[in-house]
């Protein structure tokens, strides 16, 4: 088992080490998230009732945009310097290496967002219970964003205007995660309980974790040709 997973672990380790040498990138994405969330009340007005109502959607959409920011750089640097070719020619499973990169991306871009979200939720006057549900929904949902995003990043690798194109391809596919994620808190406030939404979100996570690395690998092989 550990032999089978070793390329996966090596790939995660490598990308985390690289991220540690580029700390500014992590901080930038996080700061982007914080600033977008804080802009919303400024555009909408400080009415606490209204803010409480839009909080889940606002935090979710901001999280979605923040992960999008780092996705363009998920494969591009490795493609530019030839590392991706070496990975494609590795005797180990290319899919596992790609899965490792996706996990590393989530740890760097998704996890900090999840951790800071409750603090920002306080600014929107959310109750303790809502904050907890929001955090759980983000914890289940942000990996989905990284996984589906990886497919888009692989498809647009090395393509003209890849940044804007990536958003065009990926954002419609993010809709189910957004609906179930933000909906969990709203359903709870409406008295329906968050379980249904969270289970669907978890199911989506399992399905995308199973298929997305594989599809991304196929797309990367096409991009390398």
């Amino acid at each position: 088992m550990s032999r089978f997973l070793s390329p996966f672990i090596q790939s995660v380790r490598r990308d985390l080490l690289l991220a540690a040498r580029h700390k500014t990138e992590i901080v930038t994405a996080l700061f982007f998230f914080v600033i977008v969330v804080n802009l919303l009340p400024l555009g909408i007005g400080p009415d606490p009732d209204l803010l409480r109502k839009i909080a889940p959607g606002a935090l979710w959409i901001s999280a979605l945009l923040a992960t999008l920011l780092g996705l363009q750089r998920l494969f591009a640097p490795d493609h530019a310097d030839g590392t991706l070719e070496q990975m494609a020619l590795s005797p180990q499973s290319f899919t596992l290496l790609v899965a490792g990169k996706i996990l590393a991306h989530w740890l760097v871009a998704g996890l900090p967002v999840v951790l800071i979200a409750p603090v920002l939720g306080l600014q929107f006057d959310l109750s303790g219970r809502s904050l907890l549900i929001l955090t759980v929904s983000l914890l289940l949902g942000t990996p989905i964003l990284s996984l589906i995003g990886a497919v888009g990043a692989a498809l647009t690798l090395g393509v003209r205007g890849s940044g804007a194109l990536l958003s065009l391809l990926i954002l419609p596919l993010y809709i189910p995660a957004l609906i179930f994620g933000a909906g969990a808190v709203e359903a709870d406030l409406a008295g329906l309980g968050p379980d249904g939404h969270l289970s669907l979100l978890a199911a989506l996570l399992v399905v995308s974790a199973f298929f997305a690395p594989w599809v991304a690998t196929v797309a990367l092989r096409v991009a390398l040709e």
Binding site: S6, P7, Q10, S11, R13, R14, L17, L18, R21, H22, A80, D81, G82, T83, E85, Q86, M87, S90, P91, Q92, L97
Partner: peptide
């Protein structure tokens, strides 16, 4: 002809990490 080297890593890290990914 591309280097497949990471500018921000040392030669030692580059070698051990890239070979590690190849098993």
């Amino acid at each position: 002809h591309q280097g497949a080297l990471k500018e921000e890593l040392t030669p030692l890290e580059n070698l051990t990490l890239s070979l590690g990914m190849e098993g």
